[in-house]
C-alpha cells in the first residue's frame, strides 16, 4: 500500500542568510538560502521549508524576495513560517509564492486563526508547527519563540485541537533534539501520529539516515524535515569566502559535528528505499 514518504529540507533564514543552530539557538551563518534550495531541488527534495527565525514584523523584504525567487525557479511546494500573526501576513506570504504557511505562536495565542485561515486558504495550505520540550515528569509541552516561551499547553492535546480546527498538516519539532544529531524523539512522534489523522512531519534530531528511517517506521511520520545533515553536507563542498555578515566563525573554522553525518538527499533516499520505505528518488539530472 502506497504512502510515499517526503524528505523536506528545512532552511532557517535570518535576514538574507541561511543559518543553523542547536536547540533552535546559537545561530551560525551557512550561506545563501536560494543556493542551498536550488541544490536540494536538483537533488530531488520533495518540498522545501523556510523558517524566518527572527520573525520580526518589520524588515521582511529580504524574506519576500527569497520566497518570490524560489517560487519562480523551483517547481516543488514551499512552506513558509516564522512570525506570521494575522490572516494578512498569511496572504502576503502566499502571494509572494509560498504554497503553504506554518503557524506556531499565533495559533497558540489564538487557536481560531487556524480555522479562519484554513477556511480562507484551504486546510492543506495551513500547517501547524508544534515545538515541544519534554518535561522531567515525561510530559510534553508546547513552546513558542524558538523554544524560549513555555505556553503551558500540552503537546498531544494541542495537536488534536489543531487538527479539529482545520490544520492540514503538523510539523513536530523536538526542541530537545533539534540540531543535536542524536536521533528523533520517537516516543513523541508516535504519540502525535496516533493522536491525529493528518500527516505529521517529524523534525529535530536527524544525525544519520537510520534516524530518519526510525521516525518513519517506529514513529509513523509521513515526512521528515532535515536541516543540519543536509546543510553541513552541502556547506562542506563550498567556501565561506563570500559570507561577510553574521556569525561566520563556524564556516571559516571548517569544523564539523561529530554526531551529524553529512548526507545528500539522494543518499538519504537510497537508504530509505533499501530499508523498504517508499520514497521518490528523482530520475532526472541537471
Amino acid at each position: 500500500m502506497t504512502n510515499t514518504i517526503r524528505i523536506i529540507p528545512r532552511l532557517d533564514i535570518k535576514g538574507p542568510n541561511l543559518v543553523k543552530g542547536i536547540h533552535l539557538e546559537g545561530l551560525r551563518v551557512l550561506g545563501k538560502p536560494e543556493e542551498f534550495a536550488k541544490h536540494y531541488y536538483e537533488q530531488g527534495a520533495d518540498e522545501l521549508m523556510y523558517m524566518d527565525v527572527v520573525a520580526s514584523l518589520y524588515g521582511r523584504n529580504s524574506l519576500f524576495d527569497i520566497i518570490s525567487r524560489t517560487a519562480k525557479e523551483l517547481f516543488i511546494p514551499l512552506t513558509v513560517g516564522g512570525g506570521l500573526r494575522t490572516i494578512d501576513d498569511i496572504k502576503n506570504v502566499l502571494r509572494a509564492g509560498a504554497d503553504k504557511v506554518s503557524l506556531n505562536t499565533a495559533a497558540i495565542k489564538d487557536p481560531q486563526i487556524i480555522r479562519q485561515a484554513s477556511l480562507k486558504f484551504g486546510c492543506s495550505t495551513i500547517v501547524v508547527t508544534i515545538e515541544v520540550i519534554r518535561q522531567s515528569d515525561g510530559s510534553y509541552l508546547a513552546f513558542t519563540d524558538n523554544g524560549r516561551e513555555d505556553t503551558g499547553v500540552e503537546a498531544i492535546s494541542w495537536a488534536r485541537q489543531a487538527e479539529e480546527l482545520g490544520a492540514g498538516e503538523i510539523v513536530l519539532t523536538s526542541v530537545d533534539r533539534e540540531g543535536t544529531g542524536t536521533g528523533f524523539d520517537i516516543e513523541l512522534i508516535k504519540k502525535i501520529t496516533d493522536a491525529v489523522s493528518v500527516p505529521v512531519i517529524a523534525h529535530g534530531g536527524a544525525g544519520k539516515p537510520g534516524h530518519i528511517a526510525s521516525a518513519i517506521k517506529d514513529g509513523g511520520a509521513s515526512a521528515v524535515a532535515v536541516a543540519s545533515t543536509l546543510h553541513y553536507g552541502y556547506a562542506a563542498t563550498r567556501t565561506a569566502g563570500n559570507q561577510t555578515e553574521g556569525n561566520t566563525e563556524f564556516l571559516k573554522s571548517g569544523r564539523t559535528f561529530s554526531k551529524i553525518e553529512p548526507h545528500s538527499i539522494r543518499e538519504i533516499k537510497e537508504y530509505l528505499v533499501n530499508n523498504e520505505i517508499d520514497t521518490r528518488i528523482a530520475d532526472y539530472t541537471f
Binding site: 500500500m1 502506497t2 504512502n3 510515499t4 514518504i5 517526503r6 520533495d46 486546510c123 492543506s124 492540514g168 498538516e169 489523522s197 493528518v198 500527516p199 509521513s222 515526512a223 521518490r280
Partner: peptide, 19 residues
C-alpha cells in the same frame, strides 16, 4: 475514507508524491 479496506489508517489529506 479514514480507514482502508485492510483496516489501515488513511491519513487525510493525502499530501505528497505518488505514482
Amino acid at each position: 475514507p479514514s480507514v482502508g479496506e485492510a483496516g489501515n489508517k488513511i491519513r487525510v489529506p493525502q499530501i505528497g508524491w505518488n505514482r
